[in-house]
């Protein structure tokens, strides 16, 4: 289900290149999103995933067809990684009828049942019990599908998250909780706060593991272990993926709370995409020219998605009242 079939392909070279492509697609897509937001083409709140690409990319490489995923409002990258087309996501951001949700959802609310992608939830933490519920449905049906349930370190403070840990553990639900710890909740860094993110889950009897979220191969390796546990029917598992968001919480957040030197240094040393690029070249998995070709191809995909979205029709106001209720 992951973009370009990252993972489960068997060929380690192809797998690694697929991870590179998938991360680069999210990076270039989000950069374009930021541009279009600046041009006033995208409305409302808009939360970019730049810097965190390795998290969803590494974990989608562990997903099987039939697995579910659900996340927060910072969902563009998750939609792409689940396999929703860049055109459909960009069209949604621009509020077009051709958007993945016909322009009704927007940046924070994207859904694609065909990709078993269940949002895109604008209320911090709300997706956590929903993720457990997706897992409950699979357990009920006796499949070995699992649910990937992503949330941030900020959301982890929500009471419903603790409630969900308890129920997922008691009911042995096949859910993989993924805390994307970008070390900042909304506009404030977490310094001075004691998150104890792993301890909270462990207290509920949920096995946990922390992993470097700037290293996509490490994320995938940790994901494979976690998924094996969950898919085997052993109940929930929690990964704390330590990542780094380069931009502010949303486009409205100038991120002045960062230390000035922090972001450039992070980018230089630890950026998940340039790191993987270095590794690919060092391991001779592909040539510089090969990677440049990938870069060009991704750029073209994103440009084409933006152009398609800009040219697409906006919803007809006559359709305003559609979809309030599902027909029996």
């Amino acid at each position: 289900m992951a973009a370009e079939g990252a993972g489960a392909m068997g060929d380690p070279v192809e797998e690694t290149l697929a991870l590179y492509r998938a991360m680069l697609l999210i990076r270039r897509f989000e950069e374009k999103t930021g541009q279009l937001y600046g041009m006033g083409l995208i409305g409302g709140f808009c939360h970019l995933y730049i810097g965190q690409e390795a998290v969803v990319t590494g974990l989608e490489a562990c997903a099987h067809p039939g697995d579910h995923r659900v996340t927060s409002y910072r969902c563009h990258g998750h939609a792409l990684a689940a396999g929703v087309s860049p055109e459909a996501v960009m069209s949604e951001l621009l509020g077009r009828e051709s958007g993945v949700n016909r322009g009704r959802g927007g940046s924070m609310h994207m859904f694609s049942p065909a990709h078993r992608f269940w949002g895109g939830h604008g209320i911090v933490g709300a997706q956590v019990p929903i993720g457990a519920g997706l897992a409950l449905a699979e357990k009920h049906r006796g499949t070995n599908n699992i649910a990937f349930c992503y949330f941030g370190d900020g959301a982890a403070d929500q009471g419903q998250v603790a409630e969900t840990y308890a129920m997922a553990r008691n009911w042995q639900l096949p859910v993989l909780f993924v805390i994307e710890n970008n070390a900042q909740f909304a506009g404030a860094p977490v310094r001075g706060r004691a998150p104890a993110l792993l301890e909270r889950a462990r207290a509920h009897g949920i096995p946990v593991q922390a992993v470097d979220g700037m290293d996509v191969r490490a994320v995938r390796a940790a994901g494979e272990d976690a998924v094996l546990h969950v898919r085997a029917g052993k109940g929930p598992y929690l990964l704390e993926v330590k990542t780094h968001r380069y931009r502010g919480h949303s486009m409205a957040d100038p991120a002045k709370y960062r230390r000035a030197a922090e972001t450039p240094r992070q980018r230089e040393d630890r950026d998940p995409i340039t790191s993987l690029r270095r590794q690919i070249l060092a391991e001779d998995l592909a040539s510089e020219d090969d990677l440049k070709a990938v870069d060009r191809e991704i750029k073209e995909i994103v440009s084409a998605a933006a152009e398609t979205a800009r040219a697409a029709a906006e919803p007809d106001p006559a359709t305003l009242s559609q979809h309030v209720y599902a027909e029996a």
Partner: peptide
Amino acid sequence: RRVMDAPITEHAFTGIAVGAAFAGLRP
């Protein structure tokens, strides 16, 4: 399997029911 006692967690068990309904159950 069909009749599930929940702890006193209305917020979460409602959310769990929502997720299960998205995935096709009728909680």
